[in-house]
């Protein structure tokens, strides 16, 4: 009854001095977004706005709809038969749910990194160039420049610069995941969606990826799903807590972890969740 869900952007936002989003519009904004798989609702009335050039974390118990929400932002849910979406979702101020939306163009602006790293079984270079070729960039010199730049940004360049033509599957798990991040940023998206990017990795690699995210934060708007509370606390500026398809609470991360307003949020972040 006292769920403060459907309230958009929390009031504190205006006071948030470190936020650059005060002048620019939010990168992603949803309003009353509902989604169901074959009539089984997975998201209910989700309204939130993701500020630009910040890291926003989505947390919540398994099956609460984090991945589903994330996949709304680049319309990957289109691939699943029987999905119905209602409500609004805007990226860069543009509605993305309509029929006439250029989904391909949207996905070039909203990159995605998956939980299970999924490099193409080709050379590292071919992986990196894949998105560029889709954009019509045929110039090899230019391609190589962007490949290097993106691999550097993903902190992978030094490890792979001598074996760009080797198969990407020869890389270690962590390297593969960083390659996927590099591949995603090679096409210069504005937003990067990450679905538990470090869940299958060891602590050291996880740390490297976290550092990477903090680096990328300067240029990209990042939305990350994580099960790791410390991780959310360490890297995100804002955190949304989802429960049973609803956004229970969405606030600055520090607040969520120190003064949550909802009992369920408190139970979850303190690990007392049953």
């Amino acid at each position: 009854m006292e769920t403060p869900t459907s309230r958009s952007i929390p009031a504190e936002d205006a006071l948030d001095s470190e936020s650059p989003s005060r002048t620019s519009p939010p990168a992603i904004e949803t309003k009353d977004l509902c989604l169901s798989y074959d009539e089984a609702p997975a998201l209910r009335d989700v309204s939130l706005s993701v500020p630009e050039r910040q890291v926003t974390a989505l947390i919540g118990p398994s099956g609460c709809g984090k991945s589903t929400l994330l996949r709304c932002f680049n319309r990957m849910n289109d691939l699943i038969p029987g999905v119905r979406v209602t409500g609004q979702c805007r990226v860069g101020g543009q509605d993305i749910l309509g029929d006439g939306v250029d989904v391909i163009g949207l996905r070039k602006q909203v990159g995605m990194v998956f939980q299970r790293s999924n490099p193409f079984p080709m050379s590292i270079r071919a992986n990196m160039a894949y998105g560029l070729k889709l954009q019509g960039l045929r110039n090899r010199v230019e391609q190589d420049r962007i490949v290097e730049e993106s691999l550097r940004a993903a902190a992978l360049w030094d490890e792979v610069k001598d074996r760009l033509d080797r198969n990407a599957l020869e890389l270690s798990g962590g390297q593969q995941q960083r390659l996927c991040i590099a591949r995603a940023i090679a096409i210069r998206p504005r937003i990067l969606l990450m679905d538990e990017p470090a869940s299958a990795l060891d602590p050291i690699t996880t740390m490297r990826i976290e550092e990477l995210i903090l680096e990328l934060r300067r240029d990209y708007t990042i939305v990350i799903v994580t099960h790791n509370m410390q991780q959310a606390a360490r890297i995100s500026d804002r955190t949304a807590f989802l429960y049973l398809g609803e956004v229970v609470e969405f606030d600055r991360t520090s607040r969520i972890f120190t003064h949550p307003r909802d009992q369920r949020t408190e139970d979850y972040v303190t690990g007392r969740f049953g």
Binding site: R107, K108, G111, Y130, I187
Partner: peptide, 27 residues
């Protein structure tokens, strides 16, 4: 073929046909 490969390609802004042609069929 793992569906992750298709998703990766689509998420990079490939169309379905491009995905089939460049990723799925070669595999």
């Amino acid at each position: 073929i793992p569906s992750g490969l298709r998703e990766a390609s689509l998420a990079l802004g490939a169309t379905k046909l491009e995905t089939v042609w460049t990723i799925v069929l070669p595999q």
